[in-house]
């Protein structure tokens, strides 16, 4: 299953991050448990072991590095939980495993939609003021003046794109459009703001969104 492989890649990169930051407190538990989770997701996704990624995320974000991974932890938790339910119920005669996969798609679309709603409710986002401010919240030294010049236009574009993201669930061509634009969005975010952790984490939603859009076609 593509989602499991992608989630495995997310756990693997997070594990490497923890290993490469020696000054980060309490990093060894998440580093090792995320590495084991990646191995489970890639090579041995059996019902008993598939819960390890979920337990790892809960333990790491509640007891150890806590806020280090930010919203990406939440994405990993939800995708991991629904994936574990999918694998655990795959052999039963119920359609629960299909429902779990579909829920991954719904959660992904909901995440983008809610980000859009919070921007819609912010007058400073609509005027481009917040966009300009967010450009200063970057870990890189570059300032990207071209983005500042078009801040209002880009703000409204992002707002409309996020609000309309649930349309991706209705048709496969729309799904492909939103998935490709989503990847571009996250790669630009990673380049400009340094939010690389979301590039792979959010891509875990995309196979399920594509699956849901095919269901929508029929």
């Amino acid at each position: 299953m593509v989602t499991a492989k992608l989630l495995g890649l997310v756990f693997f990169t997070c594990s490497l991050e923890y290993f490469s930051l020696p000054h980060l407190a309490h990093r060894l538990f998440p580093a090792w448990s995320y590495l084991l989770s990646a191995i489970v997701l890639w090579f041995i996704p059996i019902p008993l072991l598939i819960w390890l990624p979920v337990i790892s995320v809960i333990a790491s974000s509640c007891f150890f590095t806590r806020r280090f991974n930010g919203g990406a932890d939440s994405v990993m938790f939800w995708v991991g939980l629904l994936l574990a339910l999918t694998y655990t119920t795959a052999d039963s005669k119920t359609h629960f495993s299909v429902i779990s996969v579909m829920t991954i798609g719904f959660v992904g679309a909901f995440a983008y939609f809610m980000a859009g709603v919070s921007k819609l409710l912010s007058p400073q986002w609509r005027t481009g003021e917040t966009f300009q401010w967010s450009l200063s919240q970057t870990c890189f030294s570059e300032t990207f003046p071209i983005l500042r010049q078009h801040s209002r236009c880009l703000s409204l574009g992002i707002l409309l794109w996020q609000l309309s993201f649930p349309l991706a669930l209705t048709h496969r061509y729309l799904a492909i459009f939103y998935i490709v634009s989503g990847l571009v969005f996250h790669i630009v975010n990673a380049r400009v703001l340094g939010l690389s952790r979301f590039t792979l984490a959010f891509s875990c939603f995309y196979p399920a969104i594509l699956f849901l859009s095919h269901s929508g076609d029929h």
Partner: peptide, 20 residues
């Protein structure tokens, strides 16, 4: 601040540490 390398698009420990 962190100096950019292309692999930081998906793997950026220094950047994540900066945000933290």
């Amino acid at each position: 601040t962190v100096s950019f390398k292309w692999w930081q698009l998906i793997f950026n420990p220094a950047g994540n540490d900066w945000h933290y």
